[in-house]
Design a binder for these strands. Structure first.
Length: 421
RNA sequence: GGAGGGAUGGCGGAGCGGCCAAUCGCACCAGACUGUAAAUCUGGCGCCCGGAAGGGCUUCGUAGGUUCGAAUCCUACUCCCUCCA
C-alpha cells in the first residue's frame, strides 16, 4: 500500500511513545493487505477522555490509510481488573452493567474511530467456552518469574502485598485475544507494554506472526502535572458538553498548548511549530489556547458547537454575563406564590417579586440551581457573598422582577420569567 | 491449622475515655486575583434552629454492654489484610 512520506511521519512519529518492532511495523504498512489493528478495553469504567483519544486518533489515521480496527470488549478481563497502575480491588460487575458500559464506551469510541472500518469482538465469544484444559494450555508455558518481570507485580511482590492469581491471568487473557483476532498491531498506552508484549509471545507460541506493539504517550491532565485520569479529576471527557470541554481546555497551563496540539489535533506540524515560536516571541497564549479549545470541541461535536462554546465562554467567563440558555424559572402571576417566590407589588407596570429570603429561595430552587438540598449550604453561599441578582450583590432578601437573573457562584444561573400563556 | 493487624466523613489518613462533628491532605464550594473555569491566597466543607452569640439532632463496620461521659474500654458478629505452616 502506497503511503506518502508525510503520512508516514505523522503515523510513526507524532504522538508515539514506542513501537515494537519499529522496522517490522514499517514493513507491514507497505503490504497490500489491510492491517488488523487490535485495541481492547474493559467495560469497567465507560468514560473516555482525551488521554484515551491519543491512541484512538492513531487508529483513525491508520484506518484512513485503509487498515482495519479490531475492537475487543473485555467482558472477561473486566471481571479481573487490570493490575496496571493502581491496584484497587474492583467491584465485580453484573452482566447488565458490562453491557451498558460497553455501549457507552463504544458510542464515545466511535466519535473518533471509524465505525465502518471496525470489527467488534466480545471476549465471551471465545472465553465463554473455555474449559480447564484450555486454561492449563494457556497458562502452562508461563512462569511466575516471567510474571514478576512486570514492574507492578514485582513491586507488590517485594512489598509483600497481595497479587491475586486472576491478576496474573489478566495479561494472558489479553494475549490470547491477540491470537484469536490474529492481530497485526496492538495499541495501548505505555503502561500496557507488558500486556502487549505478552500477546507477541503467545502468538509466536501458537504459530502466528507476533503482533507489533504500538504505544502512545500518556497525556498530562489539565492540572499540567499528573496523567489525565477521571479519578484525579484533571480530565476532559469525550462526552463532556461543548462548553465544558472548552472551559476545561482554557484552564490548561500554557505550556501544555503545544503538546496538546501535537497529540490531539490534525494541524500540520509546521503550523504548530509556528505557534510555538510565536508564543516564545511574546504572543498571547490565550489566542492559541482558544484555537486549541475550538479544535477539541469540534473533534467531538461540531464546528458550530465549538463556535457556540467559545461565545459562551467569552460571555460568561470573560465578561461575566449570564448565558443565553440559563435555566428558567417560570412563575405565574396569578399564583401569588410560586415556590418561594411571591408577587408582592406592581409598580409602573413592572412587577416586583420578593422572595421570602435569599436563603429560602436558594433552598427551594436548589434543583434548578444545581445546589445541594440543605439550608445550611444555602446560608453559607449567602454569607459568602456568592449570590447576585442582575449583577448586584444580593442581600438577605431578594428583589426580583420579570426577567431577573439570579447568579450563584461563578457558574450557576437562574432566569425568572413570567408565564404569560 | 497457628499468630497478629485493621474497619473513621466522597477518598486517603489522624485520633485511642471528656478539650471530638472529629487534626491533616486530596476532592469539592465560595471570595480575591487573572487573558483563563489555571496557579496563588483567604474562607468554607454532617443536618436543623438562630441576626448573632449560641443551641439541638444524627455520625467513626454491625449489635449489645461498662461508664456521669465512648470513635476511643469490654463482648459477640460481619468483612478486610499480613506473617508462619
Amino acid at each position: 500500500m502506497a503511503i506518502s512520506q508525510e503520512d508516514l511521519r505523522t503515523v510513526m512519529d507524532r504522538g508515539v511513545a514506542e513501537i515494537i518492532d519499529r522496522n517490522e511495523f514499517r514493513k507491514l504498512l507497505d503490504r497490500d493487505k489491510p492491517l488488523r489493528l487490535k485495541m481492547g478495553f474493559d467495560p469497567s469504567s465507560p468514560d473516555i477522555h482525551l488521554g484515551h483519544t491519543v491512541g484512538l486518533r492513531k487508529l483513525r489515521q491508520l484506518q484512513e490509510l485503509g487498515h482495519k480496527v479490531m475492537l475487543i470488549v473485555g467482558d472477561w478481563t473486566a471481571q479481573i481488573g487490570d493490575p496496571s497502575g493502581v491496584s484497587a480491588t474492583r467491584p465485580v460487575l453484573t452482566h447488565e452493567q458490562v453491557q451498558e458500559n460497553a455501549q457507552t464506551y463504544m458510542t464515545q469510541f466511535f466519535k473518533v474511530v471509524d465505525r465502518d472500518r471496525t470489527e467488534v469482538f466480545w471476549q465471551s465469544e471465545w472465553f465463554g467456552k473455555f474449559d480447564l484444559a484450555d486454561v492449563v494450555r494457556l497458562t502452562g508455558p508461563f512462569t511466575v518469574a516471567q510474571m514478576l518481570a512486570r514492574e507492578d507485580f514485582r513491586r507488590r511482590w517485594d512489598a509483600n502485598r497481595p497479587i491475586a492469581i486472576t491478576e496474573l491471568l489478566y495479561p494472558l487473557l489479553q494475549a490470547y485475544d491477540s491470537v484469536v483476532v490474529e492481530s497485526d498491531v496492538e495499541f495501548g498506552g505505555t503502561d500496557q507494554k507488558f500486556n502487549l508484549l505478552m500477546g507477541r509471545e503467545l502468538q509466536e507460541m501458537r504459530g502466528q506472526r507476533p503482533q507489533q506493539c504500538f504505544m502512545v504517550p500518556i497525556l498530562v491532565g489539565t492540572d499540567g502535572v499528573q496523567k489525565m485520569s477521571k479519578s484525579l479529576g484533571n480530565y476532559i471527557g469525550v462526552d463532556d458538553a461543548p462548553e465544558e470541554q472548552y472551559g476545561k481546555a482554557l484552564s490548561l497551563p500554557d505550556d501544555l498548548i503545544i503538546p496538546y496540539f501535537n497529540l490531539l489535533s490534525d494541524l500540520p506540524t509546521a503550523e504548530i511549530d509556528d505557534m510555538s515560536s510565536a508564543m516564545e516571541g511574546g504572543a498571547n497564549p490565550m489566542e492559541f489556547k482558544k484555537r486549541l479549545a475550538r479544535e477539541i470541541v469540534a473533534t467531538f461535536w461540531s464546528e458550530e458547537d465549538a463556535a457556540a462554546a467559545q461565545a459562551h465562554f467569552e460571555q460568561t467567563v470573560q465578561r461575566g454575563e449570564a448565558p443565553d440558555e440559563a435555566p428558567t424559572l417560570w412563575f405565574a402571576r396569578s399564583d401569588g406564590v410560586s415556590g418561594a417566590v411571591a408577587v408582592s407589588s406592581e409598580q409602573g407596570g413592572a412587577k416586583t417579586l420578593v422572595s421570602l429570603s435569599t436563603v429560602e429561595f436558594l433552598y427551594h430552587h436548589h434543583a434548578e440551581l444545581g445546589l445541594s438540598q440543605s439550608r445550611t449550604a444555602a446560608k453559607r453561599l449567602v454569607s459568602q457573598g456568592a449570590v447576585e441578582v442582575d449583577g448586584q450583590p444580593a442581600g438577605d432578601t431578594l428583589s426580583l422582577r420579570d426577567g431577573s437573573v439570579v447568579r450563584v457562584g461563578k457558574r450557576r444561573y437562574l432566569r425568572l420569567l413570567e408565564d404569560r400563556s
